[in-house]
Design a protein around this nucleic acid. Structure first.
Lengths: 342, 342
DNA sequence: CTGAAAGCGCTTACAG
DNA sequence: CTGAAAGCGCTTACAG
């Protein structure tokens, strides 16, 4: 690689015949610089091809211009449904507009998520952090709260009233509405398959579902609630088990499209008709839900907007010390074949 | 936010009763430190909760520990097929293992991709850059080459023999093989729908396709080659147009699953049987190709491995000044219903 | 094996 | 409106 030979602020200062302070003020567009000198300095910067060194500036200002995003590790959690990439897209777009870069980190074999976060913060590599998911008893959230480091959360915190900036859908309401909708379709025995019970979003959806069951005077039965993970296998497995229940459900709500897809495959292979025998509704509105052999009803959570707002909240937290803000992003139920009136 | 009050190397030095130089040497695990002092310093670091400031270290060493990744802007290009997220996953994993963080950048409304890159480099925010796609006449590649900044490319450069580290599949061969395979299935009139002609990968696939057509003594006809973009609409549109050709094709190769999916939808809606009337083969092996009503043959390019290797190459370039290295990642054709023997 | 000193490239009170 | 000086928190020849 060619020798760096970086042009520095001092070079510009010499050439322009002013002090480094003045050049610095021109860079930061500070007030109280005469138009004449400003002009001259700008010209010299241009002629020398000067560009300010972001690292040096970071050190002096104690501010990096970076936002840390911690990626989940398991690929299945990330890329098999569109949530993560879509949210990331919103994050990157919004960060760019606010003048921040995104530092993407992840846990390595050697360290867990919390340690990744600590490294980012203690190494002063970022000004703030976005957490892309909210777990129950989330130690990352606890840590960030405890040191009052600026962060925002996609999802809801597991504790209330703790000043955490977060952006979420009303997942309780979404599940409630979905369940009610199924009862309107005449379904009387609605099961649920929930993926990853460690996530707050799962918890909320289960609660919304239960609430709707109660209010509809349907009998809720723990056996109708299946807990698994974000993969097709969970769908295959519980798709089968549903059929073994004493009173076979006539509908099932699944908390993720990939799981729902697996369940539908297994059910159809066993000659169960969807939606006649069992209706299916799900979350995330992925390509699968739209293009499955039997397209299925699914809730669009607007992941892009969640990402967008998470950055806006975070920037407010970093720059204006804002806390305790909550933003609700609307969801949308896309009704399809799998819950058609029969 | 609580006052930073960062514990510095100097604090540790004072407490341990040594010079800052010594502490620094302990941090970097430099040789020639007596075990005794090393022990003592380590103990003090621990007691004070000291953690080295990455920014200060960057400035002193002129090295950031960051790798820049420039995201494409158009969402369709990114997230509707699994290539980008999968490659990113490989990049993040590999970077973490090599001790680098990923700085994700993108063009804003104000600046194009080249300017984003320039900002990263001239601001000294990254030690190297990964380009996630290779365009024909790619100005980012030209710029990076011209200043000899460490970078690696996913895809092949549009010029040869210029020392660019890159990792790619043999896309020429993949398209060639796919075409030959269709002729073996008895197809004699094979069309192609290519997405985004500005990409090198598209160019190579077109070339492979043409070569196979020639070698099979089939007549190549410019009219059978359709050029569009990475979306279903392209599939819809050319799926229709194919049927209007003087001699109707009995097979079509598409360079992306989403486009292929669109084409299949339109063809089936017009009562064309797949594969009996028209066979379809495509690229990227996405969820769609597997789970489409008519599952279709698709080439898996191993995006995860492409990302992994891109980082390995880049790290070699950064740390050992390695240039001119090319890595080939194997592809795999997944044969499905859409090219079944009839 | 260890320390004093200079330096990485900026910013920012303070003073005028 | 502008400058001199100190400082951000580290590293690294140089010297011993």
């Amino acid at each position: 690689m060619i020798k760096k030979n970086q042009v520095t602020l001092n070079d510009v200062a010499k050439k322009a015949g002013v002090s480094p302070s003045t050049v610095s003020r021109v860079i930061s567009n500070s007030s109280r610089i005469s138009d004449a000198t400003k002009e001259r300095v700008l010209k010299c910067m241009d002629e020398l091809g000067y560009y300010p060194n972001a690292i040096a500036r970071s050190l002096a200002k104690n501010k990096t211009g970076n936002i840390g995003v911690i990626m989940p590790t398991r690929s299945e959690d990330i890329f098999l449904n569109p949530f993560f990439p879509e949210a990331l897209r919103g994050i990157v777009r919004s960060a760019a507009n606010a003048g921040y870069d995104i530092l993407l980190s992840t846990n390595t074999e050697l360290e867990n998520e919390l340690n990744s976060i600590k490294n980012l913060i203690r190494g002063s590599k970022v000004d703030g952090i976005v957490l892309m998911s909210s777990k129950i008893d989330d130690e990352s959230i606890d840590y960030l709260s405890s040191i009052d480091f600026p962060f925002s959360l996609i999802g809801s915190p597991y504790k209330v009233d703790n000043g955490i900036n977060h952006v979420d859908n009303d997942n309780f309401m979404a599940a409630y509405e979905l369940t009610m909708y199924l009862t309107l379709m005449g379904k009387k025995n609605i099961a649920m398959i929930a993926a990853d019970p460690s996530l707050m979003v799962t918890k909320k959806r289960i609660e919304g579902y239960k609430k709707a069951i109660e209010e509809s005077n349907l009998n809720f039965n723990e056996k109708q609630l299946f807990i698994g993970s974000f993969d097709e296998e969970t769908g295959y497995k519980y798709g089968r088990e549903i059929l073994e229940l004493d009173s076979r459900p006539d509908a099932v709500i699944v908390t993720d499209d990939l799981v729902a897809f697996g369940a539908i495959q297994v059910l159809e292979s066993l000659n169960i008709r969807i939606p006649e025998d069992i209706a299916v509704a799900s979350f995330n509105n992925s390509v699968l839900s739209r293009y499955s052999q039997t397209p299925f009803t699914s809730v669009d959570v607007n992941a892009y907007d969640l990402g967008l707002e998470a950055i806006d909240l975070l920037v407010e937290a970093i720059e204006n010390d804002v806390r305790n803000r909550k933003v609700l992003i609307p969801y949308k139920i896309h009704k399809r074949e799998s819950t058609r009136i029969v």
